[in-house]
Design a protein around this nucleic acid. Structure first.
Lengths: 228, 228
DNA sequence: GGATAATGGATAACGCTATTATCCATTCTG
DNA sequence: CAGAATGGATAATAGCGTTATCCATTATCC
């Protein structure tokens, strides 16, 4: 299958396909000549997956590549795939590196990222066995720190019930992953369950919030863009 | 307080403050002269909030503005604030408008966005009373559609247990919002609980996932960037 | 009161990333 | 053999957040 057909079957323009090839998130086709390559069904699947992660989920191209690499890398070891996938920073806002340091008090320029201790308390209290490199820990720490700075009275203890629900959720997640299908399909499924489900979960929470909110406070309809 | 001091107290550079003023997410200071304005503590708080939403959470400037407007607009009506806040599309990937139509089969070019029926089934089954304009519905629909397209065997029934957990979560959320403090502080708190908590919740899920994963599959440590 | 630095305001430059377009030599198609 | 399509690289575009540049005006301090 040539690139034009690949484009037709996936609805992705040819230059964009080339871009993905360049960035390494779409494996190159089997070269049949200096300017001809052959693509297969795998490419179609992979391309659809890319478009889903980049489009439906807000993942950046880089993050997407990491995930895809994880799939192809550790196909046999599902836990490894999970590990790599979990290590990928979600789209945005769940982790960020050399941030502009919004802290006006740069005291104790050491290695204590502000909320880490509390995050560890939370993890310890839950009895979770997680590797120290998991970026999610840092995310929790940052959110705790931000909440603290802004003076919301929310500390790690307030998050405990949330953590318990997260635990239940993870149970559900892992239950979706019991081995069916070949390893590759399984790895892909792991990615979908882990990554693609995230916006849906947040959306479900928002729906539930609106429901509870309208029950608690007035029943006025105030969600859309229209006023009054 | 002049802009320079505002900058010093928040760690935000002056040009960036100007930018926020321009974009309307930071209310202008009280003008004392043609080229002098006076800022107060409110501006400090607001600015910190902005930096938190933009930085720690990945919100775009536009979305942040909507939220802030919601706070200042409906301070008395907490449900309204919630409504507006819930209507804001999270960071990315939970909603997207003129998408490149990754569907190779553009049949029935009507008004059926692909997964909406299933999403409504889910909402109905949960007995949720949500306004039809809530974008979260569309988000759920899109994710369901994507999952369907990719052939993961996950339909709205698979999401039911997740929805129940989301319901519990919303209970927790609303419990955090019982009236203490003035309306403005309350509205701000609502935003924090609703929006800022999101990355933390996802992170908690990931932590729990790693924990369960290492219990189920091998106990090998595979989360960080290091190999083997 | 007069020199210097800071302010507000607008406008442009920058960096980053995803997407799209342009060339070109080569190769398939008919 | 002619024309269209391919792969490859490179550049143009667009959106966004951030940073820098000018400038007239105004505070600040000697």
């Amino acid at each position: 299958m040539k690139v034009s057909e690949l484009s037709r079957r996936t609805g992705v323009q040819v230059p964009l396909i080339k871009y993905y090839l360049r960035e390494g998130m779409l494996p190159p086709g089997r070269a049949t000549a200096a300017n001809q390559a052959d693509y297969g069904e795998d490419h179609v699947r992979r391309l659809r997956l890319i478009r889903t992660l980049v489009g439906t989920r807000g993942l950046s191209a880089g993050a997407t590549k990491e995930i895809l690499d994880a799939i192809t890398a550790g196909q046999e070891d599902l836990h490894q795939v999970l590990g790599i996938v979990l290590g990928v920073r979600p789209a945005k806002g769940t982790d960020h590196e050399p941030s502009p340091d919004p802290d006006p008090a740069p005291e104790a320029s050491g290695s204590a990222p502000e909320g880490l201790a509390e995050a560890h308390s939370l993890i310890g209290e839950m009895g979770w066995d997680v590797s120290p490199g998991n970026p999610a820990t840092r995310t929790v720490a940052e959110v705790l720190a931000a909440l603290d700075h802004l003076g919301a009275g929310i500390d790690w203890r307030s998050l405990l019930p949330y953590a318990r629900l997260a635990d239940d959720m993870a149970e559900l997640d892992l239950r979706q992953l019991d081995g069916k299908g070949d390893p590759l399909a399984q790895a892909e499924r792991a990615v979908l369950v882990t990554v693609l489900l995230e916006p849906a979960l947040l959306a479900l929470r928002r729906l539930a919030q609106e429901d509870k909110s309208s029950r608690l406070f007035g029943g006025a309809r105030t969600t859309g863009t229209d006023e009054a």
